[in-house]
Design a protein around this nucleic acid. Structure first.
Length: 404
RNA sequence: GCCCCGUUAGUUCAGAGGCCAAGAAUACAGCCCUUUCGAGGCUGUGACCCGGGUUCGAAUCCCGGACGGGGCGCCA
């Protein structure tokens, strides 16, 4: 049984202290609703509460403060979140998550928030943290990236991450591709990009969509030896229960899973010519590595949806990791493009990846930033889905305040 | 054209119907501390995108709009 009068006095004192010694009846009643006061009881208490408020208001501020000290425990604490928000569905054994940079260059400030959040959650709950280098596009993968990402990760995550490289896992992707074809969940499409784009916009099935499983397995083999670059692609067959080619979101209609690229790869040379595309490689790896939670940029929302359909096609829908989508940081006055950085280094504008003018981790490390500065910044931002628009100066002011 | 997501001080976050006449951090202004620098302490300024609805009560729930961001690649 709660003591309404005692609570009323405590809240009246609190309110009075905050506002020059004068409490307001309405505010006190409002607070009491949260302490169990029932609407139907207002009539019963309103007169009494008004008396209490008057009594409190007649006291001096000093007396109010003194009295409030005694009754302080009656007032509930305002709830505020400290540290990282809790994640749902955390297994007793901890979480398995990853940070997945592409092999286009080293890490820079644009990577730090999602990367540190994944790292911090593994630190918080225990489990497993992977850094997965995504290098299934030979044209956008550079030999120096692997060492740079390794050094950056060891520094930022204090050597707690296991590094995995997608180009080491090609046979696994091939296995899954066959599995999908056998389940009639994927097909080899020989339409031109233009032809297929038209099918997407008109919600029509292309001429390759209903080829038999047997023939698709043949065509898949031909991707390794007969088809040339650009002549065929492995497509996901968007299941009818999701709408098929009529899926309401055009981005979900029979998206590609793998393609032929005959360019030399920095690690595997010319060994492979059929490369998985991002959504396929990610889905396979997440399944194989048993990801439980994924923290990624909001720009991957549709990709996550596609990956979920791949899980579903394999009968693993319920295994799909819990996913958080982070708002993107847009710098008003800073371009984060490893391609541009690379060009600048090649043309001599920058002395190297750690040039003080570059927003790379290598550069910031050299300038004296500590990993914990990035952790604290990431913790502050949390799992916010709001897009951020910030100036370079403001960003570094914040980062500096965490670097003390 | 179609599909998503977001919107709280200058900036970044807290807030999941009453403890919010909105709380931090940072920035800014002032004061104090310090031989100086670094750092620290105190005070102050400052925000719920707009319009409807639900409710005794809305920053919070619902609908509409505006604005910002992303996706519809044989990129990631």
């Amino acid at each position: 049984m709660i003591d309404i009068e005692k609570k009323a006095k405590a809240y009246a004192l609190k309110n009075a202290i905050s506002y020059n010694g004068k409490a307001v009846v309405g505010k006190v009643i409002s607070a009491l609703f949260n302490e169990g006061l029932k609407k139907e009881d207002i009539g019963k208490y309103s007169k009494k509460i008004a008396e209490i408020v008057n009594e409190v208001n007649s006291l001096s501020l000093e007396e109010q403060k003194k009295l409030f000290e005694e009754l302080k425990s009656e007032v509930s604490k305002r709830k505020v979140r400290e540290g990282l928000p809790e994640l749902p569905n955390v297994p007793k054994t901890g979480i398995i998550t990853r940070f997945a940079p592409s092999a286009s260059g080293p890490l820079h400030i644009g990577h730090t928030i999602p990367a540190c959040l994944a790292f911090l959650y593994v630190k918080k709950y225990g489990g497993k943290f992977y850094v997965r280098i995504e290098d299934t596009n030979p044209e956008n993968s550079y030999p120096d990236s692997y060492q740079l990402i390794k050094e950056d990760s060891e520094w930022l995550f204090e050597k707690t991450a296991e590094i995995v490289i997608q180009s080491d896992r090609m046979e696994i992707y091939y296995d899954y591709a066959e599995k999908l074809i056998e389940k009639n969940a994927a097909y080899v499409c020989s339409c031109t990009p233009d032809e297929f784009r038209e099918c997407v916009s008109k919600k029509t099935e292309c001429k390759c969509r209903n080829i038999s499983v047997e023939e698709n397995l043949e065509r898949w083999k031909k991707m390794f030896n007969a088809f040339r670059e650009g002549e065929a692609v492995l497509r996901f067959k968007t299941p009818e229960r999701f709408g098929g080619m009529g899926h309401k979101n055009p981005a979900m209609r029979d998206f590609p899973l793998a393609r032929i690229n005959e360019k030399e790869h920095p690690r595997t040379g010319n060994k492979y010519r059929v490369w998985p595309l991002m959504n396929f490689a990610v889905a396979v790896d997440d399944i194989e590595m048993k990801m439980t939670h994924v923290i990624r940029g909001k720009d991957h929302r549709d990709n996550a949806e596609r990956q979920k359909m791949i899980y579903a096609a394999l009968g693993l829908e319920e295994k799909f990791p819990w996913t958080s989508f982070l708002g993107r940081i847009h710098f008003k006055d800073l371009e984060l493009s490893t391609t541009k950085f690379r060009e600048g280094i090649n043309s001599g504008i920058y002395s190297g990846w750690d040039d003080p003018k570059l927003p790379t981790l290598a550069s910031l490390r050299k300038r004296g930033y500590k990993p914990s500065a990035f952790w604290k910044l990431a913790e502050r931002i949390g799992l916010s889905e709001a897009d951020k628009l910030i100036e370079k100066k403001e960003y570094f002011l914040l980062l500096d305040s965490f670097n003390k």
